[in-house]
């Protein structure tokens, strides 16, 4: 189990940090996922740990997202941001315009920009993309881990790819 956790912890942290955009929140989520895997499923065969861990992790991320959505709804209602300060109306407008890509940008900058774009995807699209493209799960496995239908996974995944392609249109990918 120690070896398994060591192998997956960095990826889990990066996944959670992309979703939460907060390192401390991501650490909390990974800690909860590790604890739960060890306590509840440690006696399951090792071949199942990967799917179980990802299922727990993405479920925790989803729970965090729902809680933060509720919290943010109240903050907007009271006109407060996370520090308790009031926002100007302009700051509440979600980002819908992205900087035009520079055709000659270096590979490093492209990677950075790509990471930013992944972080800006809606949560379910992010999850589908990470599970399919990075973790290597197929559609059926991803659907089980995300607890949704295979059709939903296909939709989230193809939307994510579409958005990335659209935003990176000018890059030499």
């Amino acid at each position: 189990m120690d070896h398994f956790l060591k192998r997956v912890e960095r990826r889990a942290f990066v996944t959670a940090r992309i979703a939460t955009k907060d390192g401390e929140e991501a650490l909390d989520i990974v800690q909860d996922a590790m604890l739960k895997l060890v306590q509840k499923y440690g006696d399951r065969p090792e071949s199942e740990w990967g799917a179980l861990f990802n299922s727990i992790l993405h479920s925790k991320i989803h729970d965090w997202y729902r809680r933060s959505t509720v919290r943010n709804r109240w903050r907007v209602f009271f006109g407060l941001n996370s520090d308790g300060r009031t926002d100007s109306p302009d700051e509440r407008v979600p980002q819908t315009q992205f900087p035009e890509p520079d055709h000659q940008m270096s590979s490093d900058l492209l990677g950075e920009h790509l990471n930013d774009l992944i972080a800006q995807l809606p949560l379910r699209q992010q999850q589908a993309l990470i599970l399919r493209a990075w973790e290597g799960y197929n559609i059926a496995q991803t659907a089980k881990i995300m607890k949704c239908s295979e059709g939903s996974v296909k939709t989230h995944y193809s939307r994510a790819i579409h958005v990335l392609r659209e935003k990176l249109g000018g890059y030499d990918v």
Partner: peptide, 27 residues
């Protein structure tokens, strides 16, 4: 996408890696 995400893993600061170590031991 894979390369970008993997690079993020490789570039995690020491302080985060230490925290992950502690969390793993605690779990």
């Amino acid at each position: 996408v894979r390369q970008g995400l993997t690079e993020q893993c490789d570039e995690l600061p020491d302080v985060t890696l230490r925290k992950l170590d502690v969390m793993r031991s605690n779990a």
